[in-house]
């Protein structure tokens, strides 16, 4: 408080402290929670390095394609597709860490004392992680454009700046789903190492099992998000594929998210 004066080593607010009138007072504004969670993504060295690493890997991938790719691969749209591979691989880790750091670093004691309605904290984490993902996407598109410019200048590639809107939209939606899945796995498994390995190993294991089981192989695309996800990023979705995307993500994103939230709301925070 600006009225505070210092007496000895004790800050004393003059007069008796006011008793807060809580009746009808609004709760913690959601925008404030988002601001907190968004800041927490980058205010540690590990968080900042994750973002720097993603940007560096995008640049390396583009460099490799520029050097070794066929001229046909060097359109703006194709180069953006290259960046999407990196982002879709690593942004889920950011989603996982925003949730699991609360348990591994024990900051949950503070976080859920600030907002006891824990689902609101998770919602804020989703918005904050999505915001950083959107920023990552913007940087990736800019780097893709730069790479195409270099290709036009140095490798006699015809300029093709058509942005492939369907593909870009599919990229954005995939990124959102990937971040959500990371957060869901983080909620469900709470240990960072466990959540990260489960995120990468389980889908591969699932495909392996599904390929060996005739019944599962037939309904595969309905349950395996990677097949429709790939088409989504290419921007070639049809009605059936949208349905595949919905059901498979219900299984891999919505279900773990719902179970994770239910567990979190009852869990003892220590």
């Amino acid at each position: 408080m600006s009225t505070a004066t210092t007496a000895g080593s004790v800050t004393v607010t003059p007069g008796p402290a006011p008793i807060p009138d809580l009746a009808g007072a609004p709760g913690v504004p959601f925008a404030r929670l988002v601001r907190l969670e968004s800041r927490k993504v980058v205010d540690t060295r590990s968080g900042r390095w994750l973002l720097v690493t993603i940007a560096a890997l995008v640049a390396v991938a583009l460099g490799l394609v520029l050097r070794f790719g066929e001229p046909g691969d060097l359109t703006f749209g194709m180069l953006v597709a290259v960046t999407s591979t990196v982002l879709l691989l690593l942004y889920p880790v950011l989603g996982i860490l925003t949730v699991t750091a609360e348990t591994s670093q024990r900051t949950a004691l503070v976080t859920y004392a600030v907002e006891p309605r824990r689902w609101r904290v998770v919602a804020a984490k989703v918005v904050a992680a999505s915001w950083w993902a959107a920023l990552g996407l913007a940087v990736a598109v800019a780097l893709g454009a730069a790479a195409h410019g270099i290709a036009v200048l140095t490798r006699d590639v015809p300029a093709d700046w058509s942005p492939a809107w369907a593909s870009l939209g599919g990229f954005a939606l995939s990124l959102l789903l990937a971040v959500l899945q990371g957060i869901a796995f983080g909620l469900l498994l709470s240990s960072p190492a466990l959540a990260v390995s489960a995120y990468f190993v389980l889908p591969v294991g699932w495909v392996f099992v599904a390929n060996l089981t005739p019944g599962l192989r037939r309904i595969g695309p309905w349950l395996d998000p990677s097949s429709s996800g790939e088409i989504l990023v290419r921007g070639a979705m049809t009605g059936t594929e949208w349905a595949h995307l919905a059901t498979s993500n219900a299984l891999w994103v919505a279900l773990p998210l719902a179970v994770g939230l239910a567990v979190l709301s009852r869990r003892e925070v220590k």
Binding site: L22, A25, R106, T107
Partner: peptide, 20 residues
Amino acid sequence: LPTPAAHVGTLLDAAAQHAG
């Protein structure tokens, strides 16, 4: 409590901070 962080100051474990 509408905004618990504004009314209640807590120190539940001094070790429970993000080390970074």
